[in-house]
Write a protein that binds this DNA or RNA. Structure first.
Length: 323
DNA sequence: AAAGGACTCAACCGCAGAGGC
DNA sequence: AGCCTCTGCGGTTGAGTCCTT
């Protein structure tokens, strides 16, 4: 036997709310309050609606001080920072954005902000291609979420308990659990020569690429500046197959450092790129902005730990082909 | 101008947790 | 302790609108 329905579904109206229904609900709540019982409210208010529907309509649309319309750049930053830290905890985000509802934020993220982020953060192509790899990787690997660490120097207040695993809802960003790993060495993937078999904190996006952030388990270990996130990414790569069966694979990627103190993402971008060839393996393209050395320099001169250790697992690099 | 694809966002659904009995 | 009800949450849906061809 299933769960008892919350209301008599045969007798409740569904779908968009009419102005008349809005008026009834608003009038009732402003006069009587919710009474702590949403289930009983629609009947008292003279509405043929489910209590949950009334609650949602009130919270997301009718209650005072709801902010509609465009999100500001500041709001974008808060959402991105929170998403990086806590994932899809929309209700917590809503507490940090006065006038915004969890539903608003969720819709905004899913329809606009995520794409905006994805367009500015580019990805390592070889991490994009073996999708199944990463899906299984992300679902089988536990991470420690940072709690308040990356926000301790900001105005953002995140007090909610955090999940210790990412088993069900993929995040697009990962941040360092900095407080736990002081004075250890942070290892990050330094070049595109990274096999997807390697475990690292890169999660899959639905359609375009990945954002990779240095994370807590594999690359863990310590960032002295507790508010800095490191990421790497890549733009759309291209591949062409040769008649001999080899493939020519071009990539163009970035490494960046997000300075949470300054909310600064773009200053630290460096682009690098190159080719993959079955015979030659990966090799760098000197015409692009940055060499690997420059990227290392970029990160080492940022305000994160100077002891960053670039980790390239050469033993696994050449094992996989992506096309 | 029309068709169809893409996008937006309000609303719904089911689940988990809290709290009462 | 176990069951039940209610609330709150996050994922998903689909109607309406916008955009492109």
């Amino acid at each position: 036997m299933g769960r008892a329905p919350c209301c008599d579904k045969a007798n409740v109206k569904k779908g968009p709310w009419s102005p008349e229904e809005d008026r009834k609900l608003k009038d009732y709540i402003q006069t009587h309050g919710t009474g702590g019982n949403w289930i009983a409210l629609p009947q008292k208010a003279g509405l043929r609606r489910c209590g949950k529907s009334c609650r949602l309509r009130w919270l997301n649309y009718l209650r005072p001080n709801i902010k509609h319309g465009e999100f500001s750049d500041d709001e974008d930053k808060v959402i991105c920072a929170l998403y990086a830290s806590i994932g899809s905890r929309w209700s917590i985000m809503a507490t940090q954005l006065p006038g915004r509802t969890d539903n608003d934020i969720k819709n905004y993220w899913n329809t606009k902000l995520k794409k905006k982020m994805m367009n500015s953060l580019i990805t390592l192509p070889e991490l994009r291609k073996p999708l199944q790899h990463l899906q299984s990787f992300s679902s089988s690997t536990n991470y420690s979420y940072p709690s308040q660490s990356i926000f301790q120097n900001s105005n953002i207040n995140v007090n909610a308990p955090l999940s210790s695993s990412i088993s069900s809802s993929p995040s697009y960003l990962y941040s360092t659990n900095t407080s736990s790993y002081h004075d250890q060495t942070l290892s990050i993937p330094s070049s595109p020569r990274i096999n997807a078999d390697r475990q690292h904190p890169v999660l899959q996006s639905q359609d375009h690429g990945f954002l990779g952030l240095v994370s807590t388990e594999t690359y863990q270990q310590g960032v002295k500046d507790s508010s800095t996130l490191v990421f790497f990414g890549g733009d759309q790569a291209s591949c062409s197959s040769n008649s001999d069966g080899s493939c020519h694979y071009e990539y163009r990627s970035t490494v960046g450092v997000y300075d949470n103190h300054r909310n600064n993402l773009s200053d630290s971008y460096k682009e690098f790129g190159g080719h993959y060839d079955k015979e030659k393996g990966y090799y760098e393209d000197s015409s692009l902005d940055s060499s690997l050395e420059e990227i290392k320099q970029l990160i080492s001169t940022s305000n994160i730990d100077n002891n960053l250790n670039f980790f390239v697992d050469e033993t696994k690099v050449e094992k996989s082909m992506y096309y």
